[in-house]
Write a protein that binds this DNA or RNA. Structure first.
Length: 426
RNA sequence: GUGAGUGUAGCUCAGUCGGCAGAGCACCAGGUUGUGGCCCUGGGGGUCGUGGGUUCAAGUCCCAUCACUCACCCCA
């Protein structure tokens, strides 16, 4: 039979890669819980209009990168290209949005964008996403940014660069846009790339972010949004930077940082790695104070970020599962039943391990136990079956001794550190 | 959407002028009775991406096609 291939830009994850993803998610859960963020699960499929209205009709994401299709009743649906819009939609639907309290959420899962795959970019990719709703003070920005930074530090990533900018608000941003349009219109249009000749009218701030040489020179002479902030935005931004300094977060002010989603205003930021190729942003986010209102909810401010798991994974190549506590080698068919009972008992006590289902030579079984990097190998054959014992072999020292079957837990415990519990049960 | 590059064993890759399909790693089995790692010996494994063409002969040359990779763009 012919095989069915996976579709372009979609990937299966097996160990050790999948282990890295579990590590990233578990670290996020532990970290974010300390900041009182609660995990939520939301749909992958939403009405197309949700993304069109929040991300912006003029953005590349909406114009050419969405998986959009009609369902059986002709409604236009879209596989989420990012998480924030869906979280806000869910928040508006929930009682929390009417409470007047601060809400802190995180969510993790797959996103979908129809792009050409390359290093650090896939059509299905995974994000860990954080949103704080209901607070517009700089302390909120400070909390979100320091939590992001702490998370990345906890993953063991210390060579990252945080870039930050302010895009102004509904009050000061339009004035700046108008001024920038004027500046760009006054230029020799040939000094801009063809894309930017168009952007100069449709979305002038994007010109500042363009990577082509000519546009960079233009951008270096263009007016800066940071010089046009209104008093409130200026005070807010200054306060955010102050908090980052107090927390020793080594940020870099980047007045050309413009993000690709229209809902951002005031604080925006990106975390960059120099070690993962052209797609260098491992995390990005910002404040979106008008978004909840624009999606039909109350006028509640918000700020959040997304971490790209595929890109973080490029930096986390040395994460491995904890080795098994034991491997039980069965040396005679008659010992198989006893071995199964023993294995089940050990698992019930919290030990991680497996037994061999085939009776093979000791050499072969020890070889495979060795390859699995287990701490302890248990052996049971005819002699042990008759004597009610099991051989316990420490694989690092090679020391082996016979132990009564009742005492195996204790014998294992001598060689093991206790397993960390992942959850607390009440 | 645009451009460049690469497709040979499970993985990483050699393969000369067109002349028998290869190596390392991995896997499996042995190296004295029931003892792993190091070492030694042996073994299993291939639609040379696919389809055409040129040729006595194609992994190698030509055309097409598919897949993958990187980059542009955009973004996490």
């Amino acid at each position: 039979m012919s095989r069915i291939s996976k579709i372009k830009g979609f990937f299966d994850l097996f160990p050790p890669e999948s282990t890295v993803y579990v590590f990233m998610e578990e670290t996020a859960r532990q970290m974010f819980a300390r900041y009182a963020y609660q995990e939520i699960k939301i749909p992958i499929l939403e009405q197309t209009e949700l993304f069109a209205r929040s991300i912006g009709l003029e953005t590349d994401v909406v114009q050419k990168e969405m998986y959009t299709f009609q369902d059986r009743k002709g409604r236009s649906l879209t596989m989420r290209p990012e998480a924030t819009a869906g979280v806000i939609r869910a928040y508006i639907d929930s009682p929390a949005s009417g409470s007047g309290n601060v809400s802190r959420y995180f969510t993790a899962g797959p996103m979908f964008r129809y792009e050409r795959p390359q290093k650090g970019r896939a059509r299905q990719f995974h994000q860990v996403n954080v949103e704080m709703l209901g607070e517009d003070s700089a302390f909120a920005d400070g909390e979100v940014l320091s939590m992001l930074w702490s998370y990345l530090q906890n993953l063991g990533l210390h060579k990252l660069n945080m870039q930050i900018n302010s895009l102004g608000c509904a009050k000061c941003r339009p004035k700046f846009d108008a001024g920038l349009r004027k500046f760009l219109a006054g230029l020799d249009q040939n000094s801009l790339c063809t894309d930017c000749q168009r952007r100069a009218m449709s979305n002038p701030m994007r010109v500042l972010d363009c990577k082509s040489q000519g546009c960079r020179e233009v951008a270096s002479k263009a007016p800066l949004i940071l010089d046009s902030l209104c008093t409130e935005c200026r005070v807010h931004f200054r306060h955010v930077l102050e908090i980052l300094e107090n927390f020793n977060i080594d940020y870099e002010l980047n007045p050309y940082l413009v993000r690709g989603l229209d809902y951002y205003q005031r604080t925006t930021f990106e975390v960059i790695s120099a070690d993962i190729g052209a797609q260098s942003a491992v995390a990005g986010g910002g404040r979106y104070d008008g978004l909840v209102r624009d999606l039909g909810g109350p006028d509640v401010p918000g700020i959040g970020f997304a971490c790209g798991m595929e890109r973080l994974a490029l930096l986390l190549q040395n994460i491995q599962e904890r080795p098994l506590d034991f491997y039980l080698a069965v040396l005679h068919q008659d010992a198989m039943e006893k071995a199964m009972i023993l294995t089940q008992r050990l698992r019930g006590k919290g030990f991680h391990g497996e037994m061999g289902f085939q009776v093979k030579s000791i050499k072969s079984q020890l070889r495979s136990a060795n390859k699995k990097n287990v701490k302890t190998c248990l052996l049971i054959g005819l002699d042990e079956l008759k004597g009610g014992q099991v051989q316990v072999k420490d694989m690092s020292t090679g020391v082996q001794r016979a132990v009564s079957q009742e005492d195996v837990e204790q014998a294992l415990g001598l060689n093991l550190k206790s397993r960390a519990e992942n959850f607390v049960h009440h």
